[in-house]
Nucleic acid binder design. Structure first.
Ligand SMILES: [Mn+2]
Ligand SMILES: [Mn+2]
Ligand SMILES: [Zn+2]
Ligand SMILES: [Zn+2]
Lengths: 154, 154
DNA sequence: ATCCCGATTTTGATAAAGTCCAAATCTGGA
DNA sequence: TCCAGATTTGGACTTTATCAAAATCGGGAT
């Protein structure tokens, strides 16, 4: 994210402290949840309501400034890497999420064999597995309740 | 699902009316939600608690007898077509869900370019778009609130 | 520099989907 | 037929997110 302030202006969005703080938090914590982004934004602003975080995340997502991903068994996550049709690798145990470049190249990167007459606009791919850290920790596969994250490097 | 009763016994699960009813409902309503399955099961049983539907769906899923899919902005959906690594085509407007055979063939059908050291066990693919019916209805793309389903052929 | 309207933020209530818990009931082997 | 353990049930509870209305703020016009 080059310049958050001008990014907002380019999209005809009034510049507010809350929007700048959320944008900063998203940039610095890729794939963070709304709660994590709230913590990040508060570190900058001092205070911001939970509803404002959702308001901002929604308007930024609608404008295409950030991207929302919604893996199973996880609250939504956000990132500012948009427009490149990349995919994700998610740890079943701790939820660690990594970017994976598109499996085929173009966007949409995949075509369904039989599209059933649908007009497809996106092929979303999620690779599920165990991150190196959870493998070492000897986690078997999918714990009933996901383990508390064991702080990777972020 | 050949014989629900013997399927349960094969997995060392006591046979109960609730399990048979849920299994029947899942078989007859592919990609149905827990609520829809509850309606189906009640048509058979007369009565079954919401918690039992969840209990049954969870054990059946754990045993691999049925499969759970969790597309964004939708409650979980269930199907008895398991073990063939197929993917899904989901309508952004009405949620209609169709099966799509694996894009590449094997299972897992895709390999991430850079697996970041993860041990990948599944590549989940969801194609997002508009079903033929919603295209005809002139739905633009992603309505704020998904439209009420306009009853396709199920 | 000040005013003002519409957009944004805030607070608090509400919704949707699913889990937790303990009491009642049922299943299947003895 | 009996019984221990598994299952079912009703109700409270949790998590994630939205809704609604009042208070506040941003930025173009004066
Ligand atoms: Mn990403
Ligand atoms: Mn399917
Ligand atoms: Zn992990
Ligand atoms: Zn549709």
């Amino acid at each position: 994210m080059r310049d958050p302030e001008s990014t907002l202006r380019q999209h005809h969005l009034p510049v507010t402290a809350q929007r700048l703080a959320v944008l900063w938090a998203v940039s610095h914590h890729p794939h963070a949840t709304a709660d994590e982004i709230t913590v990040g934004a508060r570190a900058l602003l001092g205070t911001i309501s939970r509803q404002s975080v959702y308001n901002v995340l929604n308007v930024l997502t609608d404008k295409g400034i950030i991207r929302r991903i919604q893996p199973a068994d996880s609250p939504a996550r956000y990132e500012d890497r948009v427009g490149d049709n990349h995919h994700h690798l998610v740890c079943r145990a701790c939820g660690q999420t990594e970017d994976v470049c598109c499996a085929v190249g173009g966007a949409p990167c995949l075509e369904a064999h039989d599209d059933h007459g649908f007009k497809i606009d996106e092929a979303e791919v999620i690779y599920w597995g165990l991150c190196p850290s959870c493998q070492r920790a000897g986690v078997s596969a999918a714990p009933a309740r996901p383990l508390p994250p064991h702080h990777h490097h972020d």
